[in-house]
């Protein structure tokens, strides 16, 4: 098959489709975390990429220092990094409540520099390999292509966590409190709910999602101090396309854009790095609030 002057082979198409789904898994988890944080705190967490990177490093440290393997890391790393996020919220972000939200953005931007700089100091720019857990090595033969087990696992795990988060926020009592506190924090506080603690925990949870994505990514991309910077701009574009603060929107858009990016690599490789931003420009022209967002 030829298109746009390129010869397209089916295996390459499936391969890029798979890579697109993998990237989409990370985009979805990261933009979901940003959406959760934005919904509650009304801030853009610029340190999100740094927390994603630290999630991967936490997995590496757990293995190197304590011998705890991938499966432990999948649980512990989000808890550790999420706790760090909660500390950041308590120590820094809380002080900026009532100021222009741009200050919170600048604060998280500064924190991202600090975190990345520290890790780059000690680990340089190159990646540290992190082995695929032995239960997930190998590949399945799907007939038309080989699917590495680990890649399939990443997609499934990301989907499960994304929809779990969506269920909790949209369908449970806890989620109802959260949504209510987003709409009217004063009123929810009057009902006797500790809103400041909820805000701290929400930030911690959003950060934990990023760390979870980091652990999932570790065996694929290697553990690198720069891994957050590479992905954050695309994730921002995903959030803009999906619509700020929409939970389901960020999940759907994350996966879709991952796939679109993957397909672009097959059909028009030169544009694969920019296609998401082009789509963002078009969406901004047609629907400034994003595909799933409500107009302000």
């Amino acid at each position: 098959m030829t298109l746009f002057g390129h010869f397209i082979s089916w295996p390459a198409l499936y391969g890029q489709l798979l890579i697109g789904l993998i990237n989409g898994s990370f985009y979805a988890l990261l933009s979901l975390g940003l959406a959760v944080i934005f919904g509650m705190l009304q801030i853009v967490n610029f340190a999100h990429g740094a927390f994603y990177m630290m999630g991967a490093f936490a997995a590496y440290f757990l293995l190197a220092l304590t011998g705890l393997d991938y499966w432990w890391a999948l649980i512990l790393s989000p808890l550790i990094v999420g706790a760090l996020g909660a500390v950041v919220e308590r120590l820094f972000l809380k002080r900026l409540a009532g100021f222009d939200p741009l200050y919170s953005l600048l604060l998280t931007f500064g924190l991202a520099l600090v975190f990345r700089g520290l890790f780059q100091n000690y680990f340089g720019a190159s990646g540290i390999p992190y082995a695929i857990p032995k239960q997930l090595t190998g590949a399945w033969n799907l007939g038309f292509m080989f699917l590495p087990v680990y890649r399939g696992w990443v997609i499934v795990a990301s989907l499960a966590v994304c929809f779990g988060t969506w269920l909790v926020i949209e369908k449970t009592k806890l989620g109802a409190y959260l949504r209510a506190a987003t709409e009217n924090p004063t009123m929810v506080r009057a009902f006797g709910i500790n809103v400041p603690r909820m805000v701290t925990l929400t930030y911690g949870f959003g950060v934990a999602l990023a760390a979870f994505a980091g652990v999932l990514a570790a065996p694929i991309t290697q553990v690198r101090p720069g891994m957050g910077v590479d992905v954050i701009a695309v994730v921002f574009a995903v959030v803009v396309i999906g619509g700020m603060g929409s939970i389901l929107g960020s999940i759907v858009t994350g996966f879709t854009l991952g796939v679109v990016e993957g397909l672009t690599k097959v059909f028009y490789p030169e544009a694969s790095n920019t296609v998401v931003f082009f789509i963002m420009a078009i969406v901004l022209l047609v629907r400034p609030a994003g595909l799933f967002g409500r107009a302000q």
């Binding site: 820094f92 600048l106 604060l107 931007f109 500064g110 924190l111 991202a112 520099l113 600090v114 975190f115 990345r116 700089g117 520290l118 780059q120 100091n121």
Partner: peptide
């Protein structure tokens, strides 16, 4: 890379 860290601290 300490320059990056210092810049971040100045930001904060």
């Amino acid at each position: 890379e300490w320059v990056t860290v210092i810049q971040g601290v100045v930001f904060v």
